[in-house]
Design a protein around this nucleic acid. Structure first.
Lengths: 186, 186, 186, 186
DNA sequence: AATGAATGAGGATTCATTCAT
DNA sequence: CATGAATGAATCCTCATTCAT
């Protein structure tokens, strides 16, 4: 039931993980607990479904971006990818935050790491195709550097921006991040 | 009681947050639950104390590093700070991981953000003192970029390195991160 | 539906009473829960059907034995009946055991007692027909004594023999039981 | 807490196993569920305690009887033991019935079988000491026959007598059982 | 007649917190 | 000060039963 995943996400965001009891989730989804357990074998499985749905949504953005960017020169490519990273974090920032907290303890690290690996692989592939535009560097290492940097800036920008930064500087941040990453690669 | 904070940290690391019941913590600390509540008004307060102790330990490293580095040129300073960031993540990586998960849900975000602000301020101060070595840039923005980048790489290196990177590349990583950050600032 | 009774018996034996949910029974029987409730008004009714089927199977043995034995002298008759009692416990020993546990709590004591009465009546009838071969005794009382003794030994032999007795002593046990009962009657 | 065992026994007898929820038991015992779990790790452990208490009470009768009877000739000894068996079944017949149902499914068969073994051993020891009064027979086998017979008659007498027998015939039943068993042994 | 999704009361168990001693 | 027995609300999950299709 899609309503159950939706309800779980909503409660996770609005009331936190502790309040997300299976009975409450079922109630919000408009079904009975019994029905919940007809579709999901455990609370954990429900949370896993939420995580997956969210990650899949993000990955759709990301995969599309890499396709788009495959033949672009690094400056343009990085700019686009940074923009996409920030956009991706805007998909559902509050859910993203809650899930970031829940994932490690929910035993879904494995699934999430699969996405992480995919992103590293995509970056690495791009870097290898465009190695002539860059200085000599180890593709795996460079991928790690780029992913860590872009991901962190996007994460902090979207999740903490009100606290840490003058608002509405996304354009500037994209510029800066692009500069940092491209400077590093060249 | 310091033993209580220690016991909490130990259980958090060894058995996870779910197993860290107040009764269990008191038992490990060698006192009674009653005594626990004599010193800490709630479980949350105990966790807060653990968070604080850990952050204080990290901040000691960090503050010392900034003192050390205040007059160094940016290349040397950044290299030292990156090294310290990685070392700081090594203080108690498992506890760090658990706390990173617990903090947002424990309502202690505020305390943690104070440390975050302090670090941003330290970086910003350094950058302002050394602005002649750099291109023209907004100190707050540059601080945000540097802290995000260094913190992310240190975090990912220490917590996930086995998964993502060939081991024992700390030296290389410090070089690369330094290059990225310095390249960005200049 | 006979498949339902069969499925119930199978689950009762293989997975125990706790696992025998109506949904599971229906699944094993290859029908839907709805169909189950078309044929049996409740889970209890299903269990009752299993009990009945099992008791009927046993009673067929027993009735046949009494017919066979009606004109035999007591020594031969008792030997035959003891043998049959043990054979009857071999029909489906595991089901027998599970049902022995379930019957009292399932509220089917009444049905089972009807079979018990029938057996007592059969014994009593035999004893009355053969009273010349015996000492003077109250037929009801003697029937109670004989049935209790034979049933208990057959039950313990089949259900616990591995624990309590050297194996393969059935022949000896029949001899002994016959001796005890005949000695009592004469 | 003894009140908990008592409450469990009472509920088991008065309302059946299905109604014996831990919350209900705690309520009847006059404590909270939490306290129940302070003393017993699970519902099963509580039931085990009830079983043990009941078996211990019975075994006190039985052990005393065997001590008393050790040097008596078989006629007197058997009469006494039969009487004690019936008395023992009178200790708490309703509880006895419920437990007889619960034991096999509660996984406490092992404990109960220990008592069974003890009784067989006591009988066997008696028989060996008095073998001169009897025909030649295998002590283990004879013990099995005697225990099965006496136990069954006592059980049926106490638990089903209203259904199966004219009441108040205990004296007669003791006579008959003694006759049957002594006749068998001699 | 058959289906199987939906129901929801109920059960075992945990744990932060209190308070009489 | 310290203790730890006692509390009971809250949680996850099961299962007999119903009923719209």
């Amino acid at each position: 039931m899609d309503a159950l995943v939706e309800a779980t996400a909503r409660i996770l965001v609005k009331e936190g993980f502790e309040k997300a009891s299976t009975n409450r989730i079922a109630e919000i989804a408009g079904v009975s607990v019994g029905s919940l357990y007809q579709y999901f074998p455990s609370k954990e499985a429900l949370v896993a479904a939420v995580i997956d749905r969210h990650n899949e949504a993000i990955m759709n953005f990301v995969r599309a971006a890499f396709a788009e960017v495959a033949d672009l020169p690094i400056e343009k490519a990085v700019r686009r990818l940074v923009t996409v990273a920030i956009e991706a974090h805007h998909i559902d920032p509050n859910l993203h935050r809650v899930l970031a907290e829940q994932i490690p303890r929910s035993g879904h690290l494995a699934e999430v790491e699969a996405y992480s690996h995919e992103i590293h692989a995509l970056v690495r592939t791009y870097l290898e195709r465009h190695r002539k535009e860059m200085r000599k560097l180890d593709p795996a290492l460079a991928a790690f550097m780029c992913v860590s940097t872009i991901e962190a800036i996007a994460h902090n920008t979207v999740l903490n921006s009100a606290e840490m930064l003058p608002e509405k500087m996304v354009k500037v941040l994209v510029d800066e991040t692009t500069r940092m990453v491209v400077g590093y690669l060249r």
